[in-house]
Amino acid sequence: MPNAEHQPLVGLFVTCLADMFRPTVAFATVRLLEQAGCIVEVPEKQTCCGQPAFNSGDRKTTQDIAKMTIEAFDGYEYVVGPSGSCIGMLHYYADLFDEGDPWKARAEDLKARAFEITSFLVDKLDFDKISAQYDGTITYHDSCSGLRQLGVKQQPRKLLSKVDNLELEEMEEAETCCGFGGTFCVKYPDISNRMVSNKSEFISASGADTLVGGDLGCLLNMAGKLKREGKSVEARHVVEILAGMLDQPAIGEADADKYALAKQV
């Protein structure tokens, strides 16, 4: 940590999918940030990063959402979220405004403050005091935006290496897209299916019992495929493991009681 006295004020970018599908991911992110000495707040005015509009070519709507998000996170030293894709979108805001537009400068400013959670902990805070245990072998999927736009590759692995009992078995083509692609998976369902089928094979072949990644969109896609194929591999977001928040069943697994029962059986 740069300064033991200083407690960075972090605005949590929750992300739509964590908010709606898997609040545990947002709670785990908060826990990790607090463990790393940050003060975490959750700005009310945030919704979505705007990616669906951006990737559908609707620049006007994207700009409106960008302005709202920029305002929502004014005054925070850092903006951190559990997704390379959504934080990557925050980084694109600067491209939405013309040179000389005051919003451009504000967007650039947001870009400099916005981080994906594992990259923030490792690159910005140099934090690695993970106190968690995971009894299993995981394999890690590198989601595209985090990997290629934000350079997230070693950071999650570095943090995972601090988790007791956890073993990492890399799969083949860990860096190949899973076929989610936001609206792509519903616009081109059969191509997306081929891509996620390939992924599912590589995941199985790794021999891992848990698939871990840093983006819920990709995880929902891959978990949904693994479950449809009747595979026993479970899927979890990396922060759940790092924060030791494993009370919820893994993504797409049966409800808690049944889950506990099944585990016993």
């Binding site: 929750v14 709606m20 609040p23 959750v42 369902p189 997306s192 299916n193 949904g224 495929k225 993504i251």
Partner: peptide, 21 residues
């Protein structure tokens, strides 16, 4: 259908993060 023709849709936990927070 584009999603569930080929894969399951994992269920949400139930309550949103924002509400719980």
């Amino acid at each position: 259908g584009g999603w569930t023709d080929w894969r399951d849709m994992p269920a949400p936990e139930g309550q949103t993060f924002m509400d719980q927070w």
